[in-house]
Each structure stands twice: as C-alpha cells, then as structure tokens.
C-alpha cells in the first residue's frame, strides 16, 4: 500500500514539474493540457471512482497552487470529473486503449466547464466569457493527445501489489 502511494506521489511531483516548468514552453494554440486531470481520469477508469477522485483532488490542488484562481477550484473540478468518469466506466465495458484519448478529451471538456462554472459561482466572473469555450475545447483535445502517454504511466503508478479482481475497484 505504501509503495503504491509512494509511486502516486512521485508521479504527482513529476506531473507538477511538467505542468509548471515544461508545458508553459510548449503551448499549442495558446493552451496547455491538464496533466493531473488526465492522470486522475486514467486512474478512475482503471481502478474506480474513489481513487480517481482522491488523486484528481490532490492533483487539482497542486495545480491551484500555481494559478491565480482560488485554492480548491481545480481540485473540485478534477475530483468531481474523475469521480463521475469512474462511476460511468463501472457501468460500461473498460474502454480499449485507443479510446483513452476520447475519454480524456471528454473529461477535459467536462472539467473545464466545471472549472469555469464553479469559478463564476465563487466570484471569478472573468472566467465566464465566450473565450473560455474555445480554451476548454482546445485544452480538451490537448488532454486527449497527452493521454496516450499519461494513461499508461498513471495506470502503472497506481497498480496495486495484488492484481485487481475482474470488476472490482482494485484497491
């Protein structure tokens, strides 16, 4: 158990470094992907909504530290998105690997919409503009692209020592 959380913590630090020090240099169409969200969604799809939501919350909190919006806003958006993706996945067959970008793109758009909507509710009205729609869509596509790398990485980092039973939450 400790080893698993150690791996997840290490991956979180790696994602924060990439998000804050590398991806600002490689903006595409002026957007960056949400690496923490993509990892949380991968974990939710593979290991269930609880672990996905907790990882999403912590990863969102780590993102919030480097943003101007209130601490907890990304955490809430990422945690809720991972939770609902995990819940939805449990009632469906596990997606094939080539579906991962589609799942990540959809999750990115949902998380972006939650971020903007919840942000406007807590006084961040500057987020509630037409420009945000373009950003959410483009960032969602970027999330889908990085999912090709982040999904296997996150699933490997969150793998329990005893293999998960078929249909179980896995932790």
């Amino acid at each position: 158990m400790m080893l698993r959380f150690g791996r997840l913590a290490l991956m979180l630090v790696l994602l924060v470094v990439l998000q804050t020090a590398v991806f600002p240099h490689v903006r595409v169409a002026d957007v960056v992907p949400d690496l923490g969200l993509v990892a949380a969604v991968a974990i939710a799809v593979r290991y269930g909504p609880e672990l996905g939501a907790i990882f999403g919350f912590v990863a969102g909190l780590a993102s919030d530290v480097f943003l101007q919006t209130p601490l907890g806003l990304s955490a809430l958006a990422f945690g809720l998105t991972a939770y609902f993706v995990g819940m939805l996945q449990q009632s469906l067959a596990r997606p094939a690997w080539w579906m991962n970008p589609l799942v990540a793109t959809t999750a990115g758009i949902v998380a972006g919409a939650l971020y903007v909507g919840l942000g406007a509710l807590v006084g961040q009205q500057q987020l509630f503009v037409l420009r945000s729609v373009r950003i959410i869509l483009l960032a969602g596509v970027y999330d889908g692209v990085v999912a090709l790398v982040i999904f296997p990485l996150a699933i490997a980092a969150a793998r329990p020592r005893v293999p998960a039973t078929i249909g179980g939450a896995g932790y």
Partner: peptide, 25 residues
C-alpha cells in the same frame, strides 16, 4: 458499503474544496 464509502468520499472532497476556496478567497 461500497456505495456509502464512495458517497462519503465525494461529500468530503466537495466540503474540503469549498472550505479551501472560502479560506483562500
């Protein structure tokens, strides 16, 4: 019990986030 735990985690995340947002704002 699984669904209870799930619901409790969700409620805990939401309450923690709202507390953090309020404190930070």
């Amino acid at each position: 019990p699984g669904s209870h735990r799930r619901r409790n985690i969700l409620i805990l995340l939401i309450l923690t986030s709202i507390t953090l947002i309020t404190l930070d704002t």
